[in-house]
């Protein structure tokens, strides 16, 4: 299990390659990358991601641990950035590895659902229309009930 909370950019391709390498019993790797999206009808100057140092690492480790207990995973990785980002920048990624694809897909989906609503990050959009804290969606909270 690998958890990284960082301000710096990461190289998605390199991370995927490194994560997938080195095991002979892994038959499936699923990866997901979240990207800063410009809001509709506004020019995004930047998105500022705030987090709760200490609790963030702890919450991510708990979420990853839940996934490992629930599915037959060989490994999992979460990288999440904070600080100012521009549209198109990579915010975060998850990767899961398992013997068969069903576990890797389900675990990646689970990690994303929990990251959305249970990891202490907050996003502020600074646009040509003003600044705005991105509100949590009811659908994000509802998504947790799937699990």
């Amino acid at each position: 299990m690998h958890i990284r909370v960082q301000q710096n950019a990461f190289d998605y391709g390199e991370e995927c390659a490194r994560f997938a390498a080195g095991r002979t019993d892994t038959g499936a790797v699923v990866t997901f990358c979240g990207i800063v999206r410009a809001p509709e009808n506004a020019v995004l100057y930047r998105m500022e991601i705030e987090h709760y140092p200490g609790m963030t690492e702890r919450a991510l480790a708990q979420i990853a641990q839940s996934a490992i207990q629930r599915w037959d995973l060989h490994d999992c990785l979460i990288i999440h950035r904070y600080g100012p980002l521009t549209a198109g920048a990579q915010i975060m990624m998850v990767a899961t590895a398992s013997r068969h694809r069903a576990d890797a897909f389900a675990a990646a989906d689970f990690l994303m659902d929990y990251l959305k609503s249970r990891a202490p990050f907050w996003k502020k959009e600074i646009t040509d229309q003003g600044t705005n804290w991105v509100a949590a969606k009811d659908t994000d909270e509802a998504a947790l009930k799937r699990w």
């Binding site: 975060m92 959305k116 609503s117 990891a119 202490p120 996003k123 949590a136 994000d140």
Partner: peptide, 10 residues
């Protein structure tokens, strides 16, 4: 003790 709005990770 920490207070914050609903989280928006991912």
């Amino acid at each position: 003790v920490a207070f914050f709005p609903p989280m928006t990770g991912g």
